[in-house]
Structure formats: structure tokens, C-alpha cells
Simulated assay, not measured.
Amino acid sequence: MVGDSGRRRYVALGDSFTEGVGDPHPGLPNGVRGWADRVAEKLAKNQKGWEYANLAVRSKRLRQIIDDQLEPAIALEPTLVTLYAGGNDILDVGTDMDRLLEEYSGLVGRLAETEATLVLFTGYDIKVNPLLEPLRRRNWQYNARVRELAREHGAVLVDYWCFDEYNDKRMWDSDRLHMSTAGHKFLARQVLAHLGVPTSFKEIDWEPLAPRSTLEWVNAQRQWMNDWVVPLIGRKLRGVTLGDSLGPRWPYPVKVPKKGGLRRYALEHPEVLEGHGPSFPRPGK
């Protein structure tokens, strides 16, 4: 089991997936919580002394994660590292997949050199819209390389691609690209299980989804386009992202309280919310 001996320090790297977008919480940095916070809290409840840093920032591309997060993460001397990076690149027109996978491989190699327990993720096969079907082939390429690297480096592989639970629309936020709170909770449980850490998360017990009429479906599609797709395209044309004004949520290791978790820590250390919080836009790429 991870953290059985010595110092215990968990460092998370990545983009919105790891930052926690889709799981809102106004009392935490950047106004979100997410699966990584939940993992850190469960680790602290299970074993004393866990520290946690989360360097992930929404919208970041792989090159930015390498430039901004890799060396700081190594300097923190982690004993546990989680990495998901490259998803935003896959959604970008003109991405060179050979170069992307080469840079991703180098990033994984550097993190493996720390000898920390390394956790990697495949990308989920999000069926958002037929217009995005060409991007699925990129996702397949990415996932195949992630699986190879996990074998090569002895990393823990969380094969997100294979989780049928995410076929339920309620596991996704309103933008249809980020997990909802339920999705983050489920992923936290999966990560902990892969690490051999006992969990006590409640199983989701949902009522069956009511069928929608054609008119309801059309209206939902229109609202999604207006609320998410059009603004996303506009930001891409302007060359801006929702992560431009944000920094990492937990840039330095904090000792996670066994009782109350990171929410208690934020209440006792309000300075961690300076420059963060609910004033920033919530989900988005």
C-alpha cells in the first residue's frame, strides 16, 4: 500500500481534470475541489503525515505543464505523483500527435526517475458530438502510449477509458467535457483502490433517467452550444483560456488534517484563498 513507510507527500500535476473543474466548492482555492483533493483527504485519514500539493491548472497544454509544473514537482520530492496531461492538446486543431506523445513520454520518464509511486490515466472516450468524432482516433493513440509507459515504468494505471459508469450523463458537468461532483467522487474511489487504500465513499444510487422528448433534446443541444461550445470557440480564436489568470490551487505541500480535510485547512489558513476562489469562472477549457 502506498505510504507504508517514511515521508508521505502527494503531488498532482495536470490540467482541469486534476485541478477539479466540475466539482465546485467556494471555500477552496479556485472554487473547486475535485478527485485529487478527495484522494489526499482519504490518504490523510488512513495514515498520519500526508502532505499534498496540486500544481494543476485548467486549460494547460502538455508543453505548459512540462515548463511550469515538472521541475517544481520534482523539487517537492514527492512519494506519490499523479499525472494526466495532453487532453487539451488532443482537442486542438493541428496537434502533431507524434510530437505530443514524444514529449509526454519524456515527462513520464522524468517523473519516474523520482522513484515516487506514479499514477497515470488514460483519457475517456467522451461521446460529445459527431463533429468531434475525428478526435477519438487521437485519444486511442494517446491511450495506447499511456498503457505502454505504465508497463515500462511500473506505474499505476487508472484506465479511465474502461469505466462504464461514465456512460451516465450525470457523471458529467453541464459542459459535457468535465466530470461532475459524482464523477470526481467515483474517480477518487478508483484511484484509491488502485493504490490499495481502503475507502468508504457511498455508492451512487440514482433513479433511472426519464426519457426526453425530441423537443427537450433539441433545446438541450441548443443551450449546450450557446453556453459552452460558442464561448470555447471564441476563446480559441482570441488565443485565451480560462486558466490564464489562475495559479495552482495548492502550490506548496500542506499537511492535510485528518479531520475536516482541506476544507478545514482553508478555514484555518484563509491566505490560501488569496487570488483564488469563486470570483473566477467555473468550468471551461
Rank of each mutant, 00 (worst) to 15 (best):
D168A: 10
F163R: 05
M179R: 04
D173Y: 11
F163C: 05
R145E: 14
L157R: 08
R151K: 15
M171A: 06
D173E: 14
Y166K: 03
V156W: 04
D173G: 07
M171C: 04
H178D: 03
E165F: 07
G154A: 09
C162P: 00
M179A: 08
L177S: 01
V146P: 00
E165Q: 13
L177V: 12
N167S: 11
V146N: 01
N143A: 08
D175K: 04
L157D: 02
K169L: 12
R145S: 09
S180T: 03
D168F: 09
M179L: 14
Y166F: 15
K169Y: 09
L177E: 00
D173V: 02
W172G: 00
W172D: 01
M171G: 00
F163K: 04
V158W: 01
A150G: 09
E148H: 13
L177P: 00
N143P: 02
R151M: 13
M171R: 00
D159G: 09
Y160K: 03
L157T: 07
E152P: 01
C162D: 15
L157K: 06
G154N: 05
D168S: 10
V158N: 02
G154I: 04
R151G: 09
D168G: 08
D164H: 14
D159S: 12
D175S: 08
V156M: 08
Y160W: 13
F163N: 01
L157Y: 12
R145N: 13
V156Q: 03
R145C: 10
M179I: 04
S174V: 12
E152A: 15
Y166M: 09
R147E: 13
Y160E: 02
L149A: 06
R151N: 11
A150I: 10
M179E: 01
L149K: 03
M179Y: 08
R176K: 14
R145Q: 15
H153Y: 15
D175W: 01
N143S: 09
W161R: 12
H153S: 07
Y160A: 03
V156T: 12
Y166A: 02
W161K: 08
R151C: 08
H153M: 11
H178K: 09
D173N: 11
K169R: 14
N167E: 13
E148C: 11
V156E: 03
H178E: 06
